[in-house]
Amino acid sequence: MGGLACVVINPSKRRATPRLRAALAAELRAAGWARVDWADTAPEQHGARQAARAVEAGAGLVIAVGGDGTARAVADGIARAGGPRSGVELGIIPLGTANLAARGLGLPLRRWPALRLAAGTAAHRLAPIDLLRVSTEALEAAGAPPEPCLVVTGIGFDARLVAATRAGLKRRTGWGAYAIAAARSLRSPRLPMRIAVDGGTPEEARARCLLIANSGRLPAGIRLLPGARMDDGVLDVAAIDVRHGLVGWASLARQVLPPAPARYSPPGRGAADVRLARGREAVVNLVEPAPLEIDGEILAPARWARVRVESGAVAVRVPRTG
């Protein structure tokens, strides 16, 4: 194969060990890469700049080693440097807690199979996947470009859950830390909002949580948005509301827990309502600023947000099936 491969790795992940680095280097050599460059992320550089530099240097493969934040940043760097047109492929080795991007793409969650898939010594194919671009009033006021989103943008309960999840607990208990944080966030307020999809008439809603998603797969086999795909050119919107306290949350749990994909009751017929929509752009306006998160990163509270799809933004190595 020859050429240059680049590995962008988050050194804060406890599984980003010297052993993993050595094994990945060996797999890349076995796959035929003549040269491998390594770049660590940092608190102020999450991987986008490192990935863009790799593309500019002529890399044919960039591998993101870390959690969803690292995968998001590296995908953004490749997309901004040319995306699939550049011929650069993205590999992902998930070392995070939730690893939602890997789940949405059907990637192996175990380190060594993921390592071989990303390096190319395991059977794989390329999947051109979408990125979401998120604007808020705070970003526009600061003159900042839209933030990339690989998996999900959450407003309300989802953002409060992320903010309440303690890093130390994540290291000890894995994704169960989110379940503990969820219990602490059940009293998240209902948010009055207006939602418009693809420039349509804004619809009034009251919701504890608004999700604008590229994928709907969660840990424990939960398929929150069964129709969401990362390669379909559309985003999925879910306005989630519960009433009557724990009764409402229990009703929602019954609708989403596996083994079957989520099946939601018609709105107004129970203690939990989930209103779904799909499109290429979604705009939400809230009465008061609310917490907002993108792929596990907390942003400043937002009164409005605009999310649009960038179709086929980056080509990802995924398992070959059939």
Rank of each mutant, 00 (worst) to 15 (best):
A282R: 07
P84C: 07
D37L: 08
A272L: 06
V151A: 08
A302H: 10
M230Y: 08
A57F: 00
V197E: 03
T173V: 15
L4N: 06
W249M: 01
G106K: 08
R275S: 09
A75I: 10
P267D: 05
D232T: 02
G3N: 15
Y178N: 00
G66F: 05
V36P: 09
P43F: 08
L132V: 04
G270T: 11
A122S: 13
V287M: 09
R254Y: 04
G2C: 07
P113D: 00
G216L: 12
H244M: 11
Y264N: 12
V36Y: 06
L90V: 11
R111P: 13
A183W: 14
R29E: 15
R85A: 15
V7G: 14
G143W: 03
A182V: 11
G91N: 05
G279V: 09
R125H: 08
Y264M: 03
L235H: 04
A262M: 03
L28W: 10
L139E: 12
D37C: 10
A253W: 13
G47C: 05
R171F: 00
Q255D: 13
P226K: 12
A138K: 10
L117D: 03
G216F: 06
L299W: 08
S185R: 10
P84W: 06
A181F: 00
I93P: 14
W249D: 04
T97E: 05
K170H: 03
R184H: 11
I222W: 04
D241C: 13
R308A: 08
